[in-house]
Write a protein that binds this DNA or RNA. Structure first.
Length: 527
RNA sequence: GAGCCCGUAGCUCAGGGGUAGAGCAUUUGACUUUUAAUCAAAGGGUCCCGGGUUCGAUCCCCGGCGGGCUCGCCA
């Protein structure tokens, strides 16, 4: 059996999607290229949903290429010709933007002052975002498509079916919008504003519409970027013009997809394949919205977890509304590790491997690497052992996995970095250092002296023995109080690692220096 | 009003026509001349309810109930 046959029988959802697409392509006949599209709204700063949509589309695309020889292309389409409806509150130069309300984003100066227009700025941000993850795509600007004439033929087709399109849309509108609705929104010659005005006449022969501006009738061509389509018609026209075969959308767009599908049929096209993925929720089950600032951002995720773990989260159950909040990151990381481990060791048959998320996440080539310890263990270790630098944490890791090393386990080494970041941001702030009592001070000073003598000692038991001796000599009763004092004064927490092991890993001289600093009160005053 | 998703262990969730699963939590044990961590083990479920299909349903179908989200402005 060839990989192609396995793909045809595979159950992972990208293959289910790809088979839908394969049927469509076979029905169409010929071998023209297959077009995948993802779209971005004008408010368009990239967010976690953007990542999800492009990643998911890419997985379907890859699954498809296993089944078909037809060439594929992924279009990242920016709706940068849309009129600016309201001024976003997270950008500078609010006053300036207010003056340009209603104009296309590509006709408005960049409030950040770094690009030729607001639209160009957003596009650059989008592209940088996609490039950061190495997505393979072709960027398309709506404005360019309109102005270059790329959409002209499809625009004239919409004009030729003007009444049909209108009749499809009108029943879905409320009474007041019904009165003014037109699929064509002329761009004002005077102001550049995308006008929402009724179309008074349309002329298929001349390729024009007639509308009224400032009490005067204007006639203009629907081609060449002089007229933009209202968005649902726009979407349909774009599917036709670009020959889009596959596009997924969030659940919030279900009714829009339905309507745009009707429109594209009305103008002689076929709506693309695709499905509606569920939205993400926050910890309380509320929808994640940028304005509320709930849920997680891509940056937040990637601060505490790997890109692969985020990809896995996006891969699993795209049709289920999943809660997305901080606590799920470690689990996603460990789930990824578990899948990778399965892939390396148990699931070596091709038909099994195609079902494994890591196959999709890594485009068919998951890394060979082993993860001898889990991320959950690292997170426990980093706070339990106070091992807040890489070397010490690696020392503790080796006590679990003697053969592991940063060189042999670069992935694990990355996790070490995330664990330390977690420690710095969440564990460290909860630490409460205290000053030692006189008795404790004397004992600690003696311990420091002893450790200096040990210098490069590697035997943890030997060091541990001396710690006990010092504790007993200073009459700590129970002896536990001695250890508690060590942790509270040196680490700012009431429990910690076996101190002998810690000293050996951290270095006896270094540990002595740590005690000196604590006795000088450096940690207490650092609060 | 329309549509979508969810309901499985105390919690968070995975699974899927044939003996019910994980992590965390709980309990016990091992290792520890302090803890934590770690390791081993155990307990814990009417798989929301009712019908149907089936030799067999937690799973598939239909109908409920409960929880949540989205749409019905604009994009």
């Amino acid at each position: 059996m060839h990989l192609n046959d396995f793909a045809l029988a595979a159950h992972a959802w990208p293959f289910e999607e790809a088979r839908k697409l394969l049927k469509r392509v076979e029905k169409r006949g010929g071998s023209r290229e297959v077009i995948f599209e993802t779209g971005y709204g004008p408010s368009g700063l990239p967010h976690i949903g953007t990542f999800g949509e492009v990643a998911r589309t890419t997985w379907v695309r890859r699954a498809f290429t296993l089944m078909s020889k037809a060439p594929t292309r992924l279009l990242a389409f920016s709706d940068d010709m849309d009129g600016l409806r309201k001024v976003p509150d997270n950008v500078p130069n609010q006053e300036m933007l207010r003056e340009h309300l209603g104009k296309s984003l590509t006709s408005i100066p960049d409030p950040f002052g770094t690009h030729t227009s607001f639209g160009a700025h957003n596009n650059a941000r989008l592209k940088a975002f996609l490039d950061r993850f190495g997505f393979e795509y072709e960027f398309l600007s709506s404005t360019e498509c309109y102005k270059s004439g790329r959409f002209d033929k499809a625009l004239l087709t919409v004009l030729a079916h003007y009444e049909k399109v209108r009749d499809v849309v009108l029943p879905t509108l409320g009474p007041e919008r019904k009165a003014t609705y037109s699929p064509f929104l002329p761009v004002s010659q005077k102001t550049g504003v995308v006008l929402q005005v009724p179309v008074l006449e349309w002329n298929t022969e001349r390729g024009t519409i007639v509308y009224e501006e400032d009490g005067k009738k204007e006639e203009c061509l629907v081609t060449g970027g002089r007229v933009k389509l209202q968005w649902k018609a726009d979407w349909a026209m774009r599917w036709l013009a670009l020959g889009v075969d596959y596009e997924m959308a969030g659940k919030d767009l279900i009714s829009s997809v339905e309507l745009s599908s009707k429109i594209v049929r009305a103008i002689g096209g076929t709506p693309p394949e695709g499905f509606n993925y569920e939205l993400f929720l926050d910890e309380q089950g509320q929808k994640i919205s940028k304005s509320k600032g709930n849920g997680l951002s891509v940056d937040e995720w990637l601060t505490y977890g790997t890109e692969e773990s985020l990809a896995l989260f996006m891969f699993q159950k795209p049709r289920v509304a999943k809660k997305m909040y901080f606590d799920i990151i470690p689990r996603a990381v460990d789930d990824y590790i578990a899948f990778l481990e399965l892939y390396r060791t148990k699931e070596t048959a091709p038909e099994q491997r195609l079902e494994n998320p890591v196959w999709h996440i890594h485009g068919g080539k998951p890394p060979e690497e082993a993860y001898p310890v889990s991320f959950a263990l690292l997170l426990n270790l980093v706070s339990a052992s106070n091992a807040h630098n890489r070397e010490v944490l690696w020392g503790f890791i080796r006590s679990y996995a003697p053969d592991a090393s940063p060189e042999a386990n670069p992935g694990l080494d990355k996790l070490v970095g995330y664990a330390i970041k977690y420690y710095d941001d969440f564990v460290k702030p909860t630490k409460k250092y205290r000053a030692p009592s006189d008795k404790e001070r004397a004992a600690l000073a003696e311990l420091a002296e002893k450790l200096r003598g040990f210098a490069t000692e590697r035997d943890a038991e030997k060091v541990q023995f001396e710690i006990y001796e010092i504790g007993k000599r200073h009459q700590f009763e129970p002896l536990r109080d001695w250890f508690k004092a060590i942790y509270e004064v040196l680490f700012g927490q009431s429990q910690g690692p076996r101190f002998g092991s810690f000293a050996v890993l951290f270095g006896c001289s270094e540990t002595a220096a740590l005690i000196d600093r604590a006795l000088k009160g450096e940690f207490v005053s650092a609060e």
